[in-house]
Computed example of a mutant assay.
Amino acid sequence: MKEVTIRGQRVPSLMQGCMRISNLSETQVDALLHFDLEHGINFFDHADIYGGEGVCETIFGNVLKKQPALRDKMFIQSKCGIHRSETNHYDFSKDYIIECVNKSLERLQCGYLDYLLLHRPDALMEPKEVADAFDALYSSGKVRHFGVSNHNPYQIELLKTALQQPLEINQMQMSLLHTPMIDAGLNVNTFDSHGIERGAMTLDYCRLHAITMQCWSPFLYGMFEGNYLDNPKFPEVNQRLQELVDHYHTTKAGIAIAWLLRHPANMQVVLGSCNTSHIKDIIDASDIVLTREEWYSLYVAAQNPLP
């Protein structure tokens, strides 16, 4: 499997998203973890809200508790900052970040987090408070590395005015049918709506600053609107995917992942599937290197204009 580098640390280009493991038994999660590790996926993505209040972290932690030797074989990442209540909101205050991490560690039973990400921006964020929280978590050994999710360059720059630790990851939605970070760069100085910088040049910024991009929802279109693979709403892109499936002897999901990994931005892809057969097909396709012509043909087939 292709690997990428996060600030000198080699990690797999595919990572296991744990948002859906609340639908599995502990026995099924145990089987999923062993399958992943046996096939080179040793990076696991959590958030304190997945499955409800810590449900996914709890299930994962119960499996780890029974097999503590697994911990040293894994990179474990979690996210915090989304506050579920009667009025959902975001909270990057020092006390809340530390409280969330302590609860995540208690549920995950893993000793420390390899990576902690701030989960979506907080409009009321004070960089100094975040820095104080990160300092406390880092010095105590509870978190080794830090990052963000769904942040634009200026939000990251604002955080960096106070942080001592580097921000190493930015987790953003990206798929063949969700490409605003690419569209704006290809449609510079045009009147086409694709030239609007909805991604605020985040992709190029992360490349410039050695921040690893983690792509979530690699098979979805819109904001959780649905899967585009074999979806009759998108005949052109599915036809082109099928042509490449026939050429490379893989699956549409495999080609969709190869399309993301062909980009030179040092990306990781978060796999939300818990279906090991599906994951195996994607692993097998992850080393496919699409040609430039193939990559652009898929982009155009997804109804993205080239100027």
Rank of each mutant, 00 (worst) to 15 (best):
D36P: 13
W216L: 01
L159Y: 10
C100D: 10
L117V: 05
Q268C: 08
L241D: 00
A136V: 10
I196P: 02
Q214N: 11
E236R: 14
P121Y: 13
A285P: 05
F146C: 03
K160A: 10
P264W: 03
A131V: 11
A123F: 08
P305F: 01
S277G: 15
G222N: 06
C274W: 11
N227D: 15
S139I: 07
S277T: 15
Q67Y: 06
T190S: 05
Q242H: 06
I41M: 12
L229Y: 07
D72K: 11
Y248I: 04
H263P: 01
A258Q: 01
D132P: 01
D281C: 11
L244H: 00
F92E: 05
E236T: 07
Y112F: 15
T251N: 04
V289N: 05
A136R: 11
L208A: 14
N170K: 07
E26V: 05
E168S: 08
N23E: 15
P232N: 07
T161W: 09
S78F: 09
K128G: 04
C100E: 08
A210H: 15
P180D: 01
Q9D: 10
L271N: 08
G272S: 02
H209E: 14
A123K: 12
T161S: 13
D284M: 09
E243D: 05
R107F: 00
T202R: 05
P68Y: 09
N152Y: 12
I156M: 11
F44Y: 14
L208P: 01
E225Y: 06
Q155W: 09
S25D: 00
S104F: 02
S297D: 15
D36I: 09
H46C: 11
N227V: 13
L37A: 09
C215I: 03
A302I: 10
F234M: 06
P68I: 02
N231L: 12
L116M: 08
T58D: 12
V63L: 01
D122L: 10
R198K: 12
Q9W: 03
G141R: 07
P68L: 00
K94I: 00
L32C: 09
D72F: 01
K142G: 11
G61A: 05
D230L: 07
R7M: 09
Q165L: 09
R120A: 09
C215D: 05
G111R: 11
T202E: 04
N23Y: 02
A253G: 12
D281G: 03
S139N: 14
F44W: 06
E126P: 02
G54W: 12
Q268G: 11
Y112I: 01
L177Q: 08
E26L: 04
L113Q: 01
E243F: 05
